[in-house]
């Protein structure tokens, strides 16, 4: 493995340590839990707290979205493994400014269990906890089983909208509704060209043959919907846009925000090549691109591939998207 490693068992602690040191102007480590990162100003009195969390290996997600106007505290898990219920609970306590906490996380078995248990623990601490579980990945289940879909890069929009709503002084229920509305307005798809390796395991946890691509792949290598010959960038981009937009079925004239993220080992220039074709496909459906984000926003270790997320906007989401944000992964909007 051509990787920068010390002891593979220490990689998450070292990542968090480096992250907090690098971004000490915006975040800090929880004093009693090395797997919780909090915004410098958290908890903000009389503001609804925003919490997220998930496995490591998706950097800059999840920790990178900790900061003013976004997430107040983030629970950190092992690579591709949910944080503990205790870490979620400590993150909830760190985010609690007395007005309740909303946990915005992705639809994975471990996260569901640990958030559920942490919510019960927090209730005993007299903290009101509401949750929104992201399920924007169109390839992970058919539309009539949306509750089974995984959460992927649409989570970033969910955090942005929920975080901005909380910063405006909204109630916990209003923040929950805004974040739920954001994820309901999101559809995503991923494509994989090459696998990734957990350092402690030492070999790829799945294979994609050279010359092939796996459409609909998940953020941890969950199975896609098809393995086909790798087409041109334009063909791949057009297919990703088709999958997202067919599922979304938005009326012409709808304004959208677009996010294209690399999965870790795809160069930025290729993401722009994809974006160019995706944007034409989106506009070809009569949709209006209001704002776009292209970069490594939500990765899967060193997987080769990309995700496309489209969020439908309304006046409120447009205003919340433009609200000030200052977190390491998502600069001032």
């Amino acid at each position: 493995m051509q990787r920068f490693l010390n002891d593979p068992d220490d990689i998450v602690d070292e990542t968090v340590r480096g992250f907090v040191r690098a971004h000490a102007d915006r975040v800090r480590l929880h004093p009693d839990n090395a797997r919780v990162v909090a915004a410098l100003d958290a908890p903000v009195a009389s503001k609804v707290g925003i919490v997220t969390g998930g496995g490591s290996g998706h950097e800059p997600a999840f920790i990178g979205y900790t900061g003013a106007g976004m997430v107040d505290a983030t629970a950190v898990g092992e690579l591709f493994s949910s944080p503990t219920a205790k870490s979620f609970r400590d993150a909830i306590a760190a985010a609690d400014g007395g007005k309740g906490v909303v946990v915005l996380y992705g639809n994975y078995a471990g996260d569901n269990m640990n958030v559920k248990m942490a919510s019960k623990m927090a209730a005993k601490d007299d903290v009101e906890v509401l949750t929104v579980v992201a399920n924007d990945d169109v390839s992970s289940a058919p539309p009539e089983e949306r509750e089974k879909r995984r959460g992927v890069a649409g989570e970033i929009f969910m955090w942005k909208i929920g975080g901005a709503k909380a910063a405006q002084g909204a109630s916990a229920e209003e923040v929950r509704a805004a974040a739920q509305g954001a994820i309901d307005a999101c559809r995503s798809v991923g494509v994989g060209l090459g696998p990734c390796t957990l350092p402690a395991v030492g070999h790829p946890n799945f294979q994609i043959e050279p010359g092939k691509m796996e459409m609909g792949i998940g953020h941890h290598g969950e199975p896609g919907t098809s393995v086909t010959d790798l087409g041109t960038a334009d063909e791949v981009a057009a297919e990703m846009a088709r999958l997202v937009l067919d599922d979304h079925d938005l009326p012409a004239g709808t304004e959208v925000a677009v996010l294209v993220s690399g999965l870790g080992a795809t160069p930025r220039n290729e993401l722009y090549v994809l974006y160019d074709r995706m944007a034409r496909a989106i506009e070809g459906r009569g949709l209006v691109i209001h704002k776009s984000y292209v970069g490594d926003y939500f990765t899967s270790l060193e997987m080769i591939g990309a995700t496309l997320t489209v969020m439908a906007l309304d006046d409120e989401r447009k205003a919340l998207l433009a609200a000030p944000t200052d977190c390491p992964a998502f600069g001032a909007a």
Binding site: G77, E78, S81, S82, T84, A85, K86, S87, N114
Partner: peptide
């Protein structure tokens, strides 16, 4: 201390 799915 363990997390994931097996922890809970």
């Amino acid at each position: 201390e363990i997390g994931g799915s097996m922890g809970p």
